[in-house]
Design a protein around this nucleic acid. Structure first.
Lengths: 124, 124
DNA sequence: TTTTATTATCGTTATTCGACGATAAACGAA
DNA sequence: TTCGTTTATCGTCGAATAACGATAATAAAA
């Protein structure tokens, strides 16, 4: 089974972009904290104009991060947990590296000039 | 020890924003694939103008995702592995929920209207 | 059919982003 | 000092984003 850590840069960037706004992080956390999905309570919670929140939800839906099921006049939103796994995979690689290569400063390599790759110049 | 999963929405969004561009994902993957940091080879690899790549590196530096150490005329870049952990924590919460609540569709809750929270309206 | 409640869409405005070329800055080497 | 190499910064332009109010769409309920 593929954990999908070989997604394209574009796809990963798209997922990250969906998370790249405080209001959208808040929405995700909100949906995460509930065991069930909620409707436009999100709007009230976020504290922005209804149209603005709707737009954020649209962006999250477009990225596949949330799904919305229409109820009476409301919409029942839920997190699509799988949608974030690709980004998770990338970050997991980083975390793995952190536990192995790990400097106390968290840098991937000791920052000494000697440790750097030196293409030294490719004369083409 | 705190794994920092209670960062502000703003902070998490800032980290996500740093990842929200294909070129920057590419740079991160590049740094991840090397055991040591590399210099402006990044520019060649990414295939955009030098000034553009420099700007992406600046953004990554500003977010704390990479660090740059000046060498002779070059700069030796490295991943700051710790910097991505907060976002990792959030995604971990999602992953955890996926393994417990898990529908096969990855949705956090069965999408039946009855499962939704119903504030039913707060009359204030 | 009309009303009511909720959400999506539209139009606008201000801000930010992404990309580029040109140029400046830094500094070892000649 | 001057030259050469690498990287950062500046200025510009077009495109995308974020926010809002106003309005349209939807469909159950009256």
């Amino acid at each position: 089974m593929n954990t999908e850590n070989d997604l394209s840069n574009e796809q990963l960037a798209t997922i990250a972009k969906a998370l790249a706004h405080p209001a959208r992080i808040q929405i995700i956390r909100l949906l995460l904290s509930k065991t069930s999905c909620i409707g436009g309570e999100i709007t009230h919670e976020v504290g922005l104009a209804q149209s603005t929140v709707s737009e954020h939800l649209r962006i999250l839906k477009a990225a596949g991060v949330v799904a919305g099921e229409i109820e009476h006049p409301r919409v029942c939103y839920s997190l699509n947990l799988n949608s974030l796994l690709p980004l998770m995979s990338l970050l997991q690689l980083v975390a793995d590296k952190a536990t192995t290569v790990a400097g106390s400063d968290g840098l991937c390599c000791p920052l000494t000039p000697q440790s750097c790759d030196r293409p030294s110049r490719d004369q083409e």
